[in-house]
Amino acid sequence: MNAFHDRVTTRRKFLKETLFGVAFLSVSRLMPSEALLAGELSQVPKNLLFFSPREYLIFESVAERIIGLPRPGQPGVKDVGVASRADEFLAGADPEVQDQLHQLFTVFNAPFFTFLFDLRFVSFVNMSGPDKDSYILDWMTSKFGFRRTAFQALKRVSLSMFYTDSRSWKEIGYEGMFMPEDRR
């Protein structure tokens, strides 16, 4: 039997697997780490539907690394409004998924966990670009199933929000669909 598929990983089990993380959340929140965030919080759109302002910044930072930095003339995460679009998208998600994502953003960013997972006592948003990539790669290839699941969640939301937007199409050579003449 396949090592990773021989047990049924339900959402409940997924939550249980991350409970060790939740137990430390209160500790991690006390850590001095997010000086950079403070200035940027004022830039976050008001009236968010799903993210807290802090989660919004964390997600935007993750999305930038997952989508990849643009070459000159290509759109970036902010150009397409990936975080705002994700906020609207996730506001309509299954409540259980929403709960897990809120949990994930805290675990993913908290210095306690970046230290635990990557031996760096710095929050994700305060890492350098290469360090962020290295940290994300660790999640993608982790031997712990819940970290790979978390990476998948972040990748799916980031890429979906970027590539469903027509501003991303020119770069990859997608021309849109052939539509009836009266609707082109």
Binding site: D133, I136, K155, Y174
Partner: peptide
């Protein structure tokens, strides 16, 4: 495009 982006491996550059 989105199906392709989600299917392709890895992330970033």
């Amino acid at each position: 495009p989105t199906l392709a982006a989600l299917a392709l491996p890895g992330f970033g550059s």
